[in-house]
Structure formats: C-alpha cells, structure tokens
Simulated scan of single mutants.
Amino acid sequence: MTPGTHPTGTARAAFPALGTTAAVLVTEPEALPVAESVLRAEVAAVDRACSRFRPDSELTRVNVRAGSPTTVGQYFAEALGAALHAARITDGAVDPTVGRAVLALGYDRTFASVRPDDARPLPVARPAPGWQRIVFDPRTRRLHLPPRTHLDLGATAKAHAAERAARRAAERSGCGVLVSLGGDLATAGPAPRGGWRVGLVDDHTEPATAGTPCVAVSGGALATSGVRVRTWRRSGRTVHHIVDPATGACPAPTWRTVSVAAADCVDANAAATAAVVLGERAPAWLGAAALPARLTGIDGGVSCLGGWPQDVAPLAPGGAR
C-alpha cells in the first residue's frame, strides 16, 4: 500500500525510517517542513522507546527485566497500551508477548541483516506467554512481565506513531495531513478534494503503476499486513515476520495481503494482522467487526468485505511519487 498520485496542490516528503519508509503528505505545500519535522521527531521517539534492535531502547531494558517490576516512560506506556488494546480487540490474535517466537524464527536483527537463507534448524515452536499475564498500571506506569517474556511492539507501535504524527502535524500546520509508515496510513485534518489516493500493492516500496488498484481515503486510517515482503528461509522453508501467538509459529498461508480501514491506525493495523493470523476464519471475524477490508489470497484472488469497493479504480498513469 502506497500513497498514490498527488492531488493537485499537495506536497510530499519521504525518508527511510524504522526499516521501512516514512512519508508525509500535506494539503498546503508551505506546511510541509513543519509536518516533516513532526514526523521525524515521532519516528525518533518510537525508535528510542520500542526498537528491538537498539541495546539502549526502553523495550530492550524492559525485556531484560522480565520477571521483575519496573517503571516505564510515558511514550513506552502509550505504545504498550496500544499493543494491549490490539490484543483485546483481536481476542489475542495479535499479542505483544510473541517476542521470543519472533527471535526463534531468526528475526533477531534488523530485517536488512536477516540471513536470507538460514540453514539452522527451526526450534520447537511454543505458544506465546499471553498478553493477559502482563501486569501493567497505566496510571503509575508500573509494568511486570512474566519471567522469560519478551515483548515485540513492532507493528502496533508503528501504527501508533503514524496516528500520533498525523494528528500532531495537522494541529501544528493547520492543514490536512496523511502519514505513511510502511503499510500503516493515518490521516488528520481536511482531506484534499476527492480524498487521498492510495495504491494497493504488496510492497509499499514498489511504485504504483497505471494498473495499480486504488482507493480514495477521506479520513481515518488504512493498514495493510502481508506475508510477501518480510520473508526469509529457515531450514529449507519460507518463514515471515507474522507469528500466531497460539502456536508460536508462522500461520498457514491463506492471505498474501490484507488491507483494513478503520477510524484509528492501531485498530486498522491490528485487524489486518489478525486476519493474516486467522487465515480462513478471517472473513467471518472481519465481518463481525464490520470493518471494510480487502483480502488477497495466495493465489491472487481478491475478497472485499464490509463496504470495501468491489471495483477499485486504477491509478492514473504515473503512479506514486
């Protein structure tokens, strides 16, 4: 999923961040420096608090102290709150206690450094400890993880950062803003005429082309999760970064990508990731949640639910910028 052709009068800035691409679009070009500054500050904050790959991040400190109570900072508390919210609304299909399972698959360093073909045998998969075992008081910010539990806030922290950045950039600039962090898009303020055009691609780094399906987003958020981009081979089999908390292993491949629209980016991200985990059960679950969604199967077949347009319009020639 990638922002599509720029509506007339808008401006865009983008830069590498969090192992992906951060982008911001504004409806008033003169507001772009302010909006970009807000996004860069937000990216730096979420990286300091929630990175699995920084020895000085707060997440690293929290995981080292698993089994003992600790007090966390305000930003980390908000990110953890978003992760626990995602666990609740997905009935545990998205669970922040999958950290050790993700490490066991070989995702123990930045994705650019992950061995593309790791010959080491896969360890026996074990269910995640479970988000319900986390003891956290958001008022005092006191946290107690079960022993040997590692948190992974990756996806929800990124979505939370996108939501915060869009809201703050709109407040400071006084115009409409779209923020994209990888597959997570959040909007705030008035949308451009006709909405923000978003191309639906497996890999957000791929440029949208004339035939790329596209939707117009006038508000809220849109998130895409999939199993085509962050993949590698381990002991002769293909694995990816999404883990089923119930098993500690990658879920059986059913959906190549899932895009979900929601009022909030964390909700959209949680639902899209949960759909990948739930596999064949995803359409019924998304239908019960009444969330617009587009599911692309491993075979390329597309299913649209909850009012998602069945006939998405292609991007105009030129695609994304």
Rank of each mutant, 00 (worst) to 15 (best):
76 F>R: 12
67 G>P: 03
40 R>D: 02
65 R>C: 10
57 S>M: 11
43 V>G: 04
95 D>Y: 04
29 P>L: 10
53 F>R: 08
49 A>V: 03
100 R>A: 12
88 R>W: 03
90 T>E: 01
63 N>K: 06
95 D>W: 05
36 E>M: 04
50 C>T: 04
62 V>F: 05
89 I>F: 07
82 A>F: 02
93 A>Y: 00
100 R>M: 08
49 A>R: 14
58 E>P: 00
56 D>W: 04
46 V>A: 09
70 T>C: 15
45 A>I: 00
90 T>K: 04
92 G>F: 04
67 G>C: 09
61 R>E: 10
32 L>F: 06
55 P>E: 15
69 P>Q: 13
92 G>A: 04
35 A>E: 06
63 N>E: 02
64 V>N: 13
37 S>P: 06
82 A>L: 01
78 E>N: 06
68 S>T: 07
92 G>L: 06
84 L>F: 09
88 R>A: 13
97 T>M: 13
57 S>P: 08
98 V>Q: 09
96 P>H: 12
44 A>D: 15
81 G>W: 08
75 Y>Q: 12
93 A>T: 00
58 E>T: 01
73 G>I: 02
57 S>W: 10
71 T>P: 01
85 H>M: 08
80 L>N: 08
59 L>T: 00
78 E>K: 12
33 P>W: 05
26 V>D: 07
36 E>L: 03
76 F>W: 14
66 A>E: 01
100 R>C: 03
53 F>D: 10
38 V>K: 15
54 R>M: 09
68 S>R: 15
78 E>H: 13
52 R>N: 06
91 D>A: 14
81 G>A: 15
94 V>H: 07
89 I>E: 11
35 A>W: 02
59 L>N: 01
97 T>P: 08
66 A>G: 02
35 A>H: 05
87 A>S: 13
53 F>V: 03
77 A>E: 02
71 T>N: 05
31 A>G: 09
88 R>L: 06
83 A>I: 00
72 V>A: 14
70 T>P: 03
57 S>F: 10
64 V>H: 15
90 T>A: 04
53 F>Y: 15
39 L>S: 01
95 D>F: 03
59 L>C: 03
59 L>K: 06
36 E>G: 04
90 T>P: 00
34 V>D: 11
51 S>N: 05
96 P>Q: 13
